[in-house]
Structures are given as C-alpha cells and as structure tokens.
C-alpha cells in the first residue's frame, strides 16, 4: 500500500552534511518532495518533507532516520481554507512563502494549492476575512 506523509526532520549538527535524502531514495525506494528546509553547515537543521512510497519502505526509511539520530515529527498542522469565508481578494498571494496561492486565469478566483502549503501559518492573519484556518 502506498503512503504519502508530510514530516519534519530535525538534524543534529553532525548529520547536516550526510546524504540522507539520497539514501532514502536509493535504499528505501522513497520519493521525497522538500517543502521547506533550513540547513547550515556545522549547526542544526530541519527539512519539511513529503515522503511517498510503499508502507513497508516508508516504515524502514523512518527506522533508518531514527537510528542515525534524526528526530522525526509528523507535520500535524494543516492549513485549510474555509470556502464560505474566502472572498477571493488575493491578499494572501504575496504573503505565502511557497507560492501556494494562485489566481485562476479567467475567473480570477484565488486557488489554494494545498500540496504546496507547509503549514507555516503566515496567511492566517494576513487574510482579511480570516478564511485560512489551522487544523491539528
């Protein structure tokens, strides 16, 4: 069974220069999509990843990460749009760091690309009708 999960990996400084993502692909057949990352040599780092693969591979991959000292958290926050409240003004467009909002050509409605969202919550208070909600 295929699974796809958004997780946050916290690296200790000693692991920052390891080719961890490469091993997830090569040895565990996992696909990854980096949603957000902060990695600076010689200091701690984190990556928000969407990890996709067979359940068995996913579990093995997570065990591998834990074993080498990566702290894993589920990205449990989820930003959703309350469609009743959104007025499609577009105030969110330049606030979102990952470009998760786009204007649909023609209708000029604001599209929310949930797959690009990293749940950073920047849009929550930037939205005048407060249509963006954080769910746990």
């Amino acid at each position: 069974m295929k699974v796809s999960r958004k997780i946050v990996l916290h690296f200790p400084a000693r692991l920052v220069e390891e080719a961890i993502a490469y091993r997830l692909v090569k040895e565990y057949n996992l696909q990854f999509n980096i949603l957000k990352a902060s990695i600076i040599p010689d200091s701690e780092g984190f990556i928000v990843l969407e990890l996709t693969g067979e359940q068995e591979d996913y579990d093995r991959g997570v065990r591998f990460l834990t074993k080498i000292g990566v702290n894993i958290e589920a990205l449990s926050q989820n930003v959703v749009r309350n469609e009743d409240k959104c007025t499609h003004c577009g105030a969110c467009l330049t606030v979102c760091p990952t470009g998760a909002f786009e204007i649909e050509p023609g209708t000029r409605r604001v599209l929310f690309m949930h797959d690009r969202c990293i749940a950073c919550s920047m849009c929550l208070k930037a939205c005048p009708p407060r249509a963006m909600e954080l769910h746990f």
């Binding site: 577009g90 467009l93 204007i103 209708t107 409605r109 604001v110």
Partner: peptide, 25 residues
Amino acid sequence: LRSGRIRFNNRDIPTASLSSYSRAL
C-alpha cells in the same frame, strides 16, 4: 498589477489585491 508582478526600478515586485475581482464580476 493583475499580471502578478510589476516592473519597477529594475525590479520585479509581486502584486496582491485587497479588492476581489471575481466578486466584482
């Protein structure tokens, strides 16, 4: 402005609107 970017002082500046064009329509 509606193209999503304006060119100003040799820079591309992303634009956003507070007025809803789709609701106006």
